[in-house]
């Protein structure tokens, strides 16, 4: 297969070069054919939903002259999608949305890629994590739940999460470290499934993203205990009774010193020009101003930090170091690394 690959690469590069030479010398670059939007995760997940919403918003408001086409490449915990982008050198008609697997997949599986192999475009938002328990359980606050975990033998409490050696399990390990007690982590395929397992009483708690569990909260099936962010969430719309996202305390204030947010960012293949990056930064700035995007942010209680350029790169460097530290402590680094 190596030969074919080399051939494929060759043609791709040739394609890229051809495209570059055809382009007018004007400073403002515009896509000239459909842009592929790689989702390194399966259909229906959080990243996929965000990508398809972006596709819809861009099509509806005609923010781009050509179409945006969402393509899922979920193999190897997203490694397949990232490798595709990494290998599409200088192709400006390809972007990828990332989740935490940008950092965790290469560390946990040894698949050879790094965010530095791609061109960072912008951070769209940060996804929050909330500690949830079943509403029928007696724990009203994070403190009560922590006390119960501490009082029971190791492994009594079951934490459900999405995937293995990814964000949910990293948070679980951090909680274990903070409390000095082991929990039993059970991985599931998707966030929605995790929330339902909690409602069904098959696990004791989850660290679902807000959007994955909000409907169960509205139905009074699950209860949020604390949010793993430095500050409380800003959204004050009532969700259950008088409660809103803003009424959830931070985990730190509840005695659980764990902070974690997940990147929802956009990258391009390596070797693209500054104008091309600038075009997409500008595009996503326009997207952020649409009412549909605002609604998505509110529904999912996202942290709306936007970054691009050197600021974004700094953030990525720090986040990578944090992940490496967390994964090293948890023993999640693949033997090959």
């Amino acid at each position: 297969m190596k030969n074919f690959h080399a051939l494929g690469l060759g043609t791709l590069t040739a394609l890229g070069l051809a495209a570059m030479s055809i382009l007018p010398a004007a400073a403002e670059w515009k896509p000239t054919k459909p842009v592929e939007f790689i989702v390194p995760a399966g259909t229906g997940g959080g990243a996929d939903q965000m990508a398809r919403t972006l596709q819809g918003i861009i099509a509806k408001h005609e923010l781009m002259p050509t179409q945006l086409i969402v393509i899922n490449k979920s193999g190897g915990a997203g490694g397949e999608g990232f490798l595709d982008v990494k290998n599409s050198k200088a192709n400006p008609h390809k972007i990828v949305i990332t989740l935490s697997n940008l950092f965790t997949t290469p560390l946990a599986t040894g698949i050879p890629f790094n965010w530095k192999d791609m061109t960072p475009v912008a951070m769209l938002a940060l996804d929050e994590f909330v500690l949830w328990v079943n509403a029928q359980d007696p724990y009203k606050t994070a403190q009560e739940y922590e006390a119960a975990i501490k009082a029971a033998p190791d492994g009594t409490f079951k934490m459900g999460g999405t995937g293995s050696k990814q964000e949910d399990q990293i948070i679980t390990v951090a909680i274990e470290k903070a409390l000095g007690k082991k929990m039993t982590y059970i991985p599931y395929k998707g966030g929605g499934e995790v929330a339902v397992q909690l409602v069904g009483g098959h696990v004791n708690s989850t660290v679902n993203n807000p959007i994955e569990a909000v409907s169960q909260w509205r139905g009074d099936k699950v209860r949020p205990l604390c949010v793993f962010d430095g500050k409380q969430l800003p959204y004050t719309d009532k969700i259950l009774g008088d409660l809103s996202w803003s009424s959830i305390p931070t985990c730190k204030s509840a005695g659980l010193d764990v902070e974690y947010v997940m990147l929802r960012g956009i990258f391009m293949p390596p070797g693209v020009s500054e104008e091309q990056v600038a075009y997409f930064v500008d595009l996503f700035k326009k997207v952020r101003e649409t009412p549909e995007w605002q609604q998505l942010m509110k529904d999912g209680a996202f942290n709306q930090t936007f970054m691009a350029g050197p600021e974004f790169k700094d953030w990525l460097t720090k986040a990578e170091a944090t992940h490496k530290g967390l994964m090293q402590e948890a023993g999640f680094i693949a033997a090959a690394n």
Binding site: T11, A14, L15, A18, P34, E36, Q67, I69, I71
Partner: peptide
């Protein structure tokens, strides 16, 4: 359906 199929130099 907006599904890109593999293309080669001729299509380019």
């Amino acid at each position: 359906f907006l599904i890109p199929l593999p293309k080669g130099p001729v299509e380019a």
